[in-house]
Structure formats: structure tokens, C-alpha cells
Amino acid sequence: MWIQIRPSKNRLRTDSEREGQVDLLFFKLAIAMYLASALGYLLFLLASSGSRAIFAFWSALAGFVLHALSILHRAIFSGFFPLATAFDALSFFSWLLIGLFLAMRYREPSPIFGSIATPIACVLMLFGSTLSYQIQEPLVPVLRSWWLPIHVTLALIGNGIFALTAVSGLMYLLQERLIKRKRIGRFHRLLPSLEALDTLNRRGVPLGFFFLTLGIISGALWAGSAWGYYWSWDPKETWSLITWFAYAAMVHQRLALGWRGKRAAILAIIGFGLVMFTFLGVSALFSGHHAFSGVGSLRGATGL
């Protein structure tokens, strides 16, 4: 019965009413699969057994599919792209992160990325599940726009790519240190080669930058269509721009000055710090257009 879209759009549904919903069931199953996958990767790290890594990969893939079903069901249920709450934003971001990891596996098959991506997704989703998963109604009219999925997807893909480059940056620093200090043990063997990690940075930073740019442009266009002005220097916009300049500088240093290796890795980590601040911190500290998304809604801020 809950497959169909509820006719009454004005009633506020309570959490207890949504107990046992299919999307939540899928969500929980997806968390379980991600946890299994993270555990598999952990065991892989402890024993470097290939069969565990393969088990972990398939668990992550199963979780990804279940997670997609959860999001899809939620979209059908709410009648719109489910991104209006912090719960949805975290869920969607974790989904994209796992998706990026799965896609990347064809380029860099080292299971070590799985042992980082799956725990991050687990933490984000477990955190998300402590938040209210109630779909807020009536949905603010500005959120019922097709700009919402476009803007959010582009921005989150950018964030996901930046997350992976930051992780590969951390691995680069670690691997670099191990080789420099001549500590050639099991951990050194588990980590990918410096070359592979630097390639990830070289390709990932410009690609993430591209999506970040599109995310900002689509946000401006959305603002333009909703309120008639494209840019209003609200905190999130400002910090996005700061992030944008940071990554623009990074791309420039790499292309023009040949910065690579350690420096590029450190920059990727700092850049992702900015991204996370813009993504989560700004909404928690300031109010503005974006207050209805992210952690901002924790404070109950819903208006414009």
C-alpha cells in the first residue's frame, strides 16, 4: 500500500508512521552490507587474503544496489528526488562515494581503497540513521525544482571525487614515508604504488574541480530561477567559492609548475578539509539559503 504516492500532501507524517517502510528496510540492509564489506576489507588488511577482498567487494556491490533501491523508493514515496533532509543528503553522498569506489576499481584494483571507502560510508550512514528520516511536508516550493537533483548531484559527485583524492593523498604520504624510511613490510605491500596514487591525484583533482564548477554554476542558475538573483554571498556560496579557488590553484600548480607527489597529496587533503567544512560546517555555523539542507536542518531551520 505504501508503494503508491500518498494522496494527502499536507499532512506531516510522524516517524512512527513511517516505521517499517520499504526504503528504510533497504537502507538498513545496505548498511548491513557495507558493514560486512568493511569487515571483509578489515580482515583483508589483517591477513592480506585475496578471497576476503573479493567477498568485501561483492558485499559493497550488493549494498550499493540495495541502497539505490532505498533512494529510488524514497523518491517514489515522496514524489520527488529525496534530497531535502540531512538524512537524505548523507545517504545520497554515501551512495555516490561507494559508486565512485566501485567505478574506480577498474582503474586501480587495489582493495585498500575499499577498506577506506566502505568504513566512511558506514559512518556517514550510521550517523544519518540517527537523524530524522521524516520527509518534511509541505516541501518548500523552491525545493520542488529540477535544479535540486542537478545541483546536488553535481556538487556531491565533486565532493566524492575530492574525498577519494584526499584518501589517495593520505596513502601517498604514508607510502612515501615507508619507502623513504626503508620500512618495507606488509603495510608497504598493501598500499598501491606511488605512481598509481599520484595518477589518481592528477586525474581526480581536475575532474572533481570540473564537477565543483558545474555544481556552483547550477546552484547560481537555480537561485536565479527561484529568486531572480544568481549570487547573494550567503555563507555556503562564499565557502564554495573559496574551495573553488583552492582547487583552481591546485590544478594550476600541477599543470603549470609540475607540482606532484607529496605536495599534490598534501594539497588534496587540505582541499578536502575545505570541502567538508563547506558541506557540513557552514550549515551548522551559519544560516542562509542552504539552511534547509545538510546538518542545518538539525537545528530545525527550514525557512529561507
Binding site: 591477513a47 592480506s48 587474503s49 585475496g50 578471497s51 607510502q175 619507502i179 618495507i184 606488509r186 608497504h188 605491500r189 598500499l191 604504488s193 606511488l194 605512481e195 598509481a196 595518477t199
Partner: peptide, 27 residues
């Protein structure tokens, strides 16, 4: 072979050098 790491680590100087070169330079 598949459940332990008994065959995984290089045990001659030449192999170690090649393995290290791969970890630094890739292919």
C-alpha cells in the same frame, strides 16, 4: 598459497629491487 602470505615476499636482492621500483614508479 591462497590463505597464507608464504609466497608473497621477495627473498633475493634483485627481486626486492624490482618490487620496490614498481612501488615507486608503477609499471
Amino acid at each position: 598459497r591462497s590463505e597464507t602470505g608464504i609466497g608473497s615476499a621477495a627473498v633475493s636482492v634483485a627481486y626486492v629491487a624490482v618490487e620496490l621500483a614498481r612501488k615507486i614508479l608503477g609499471e
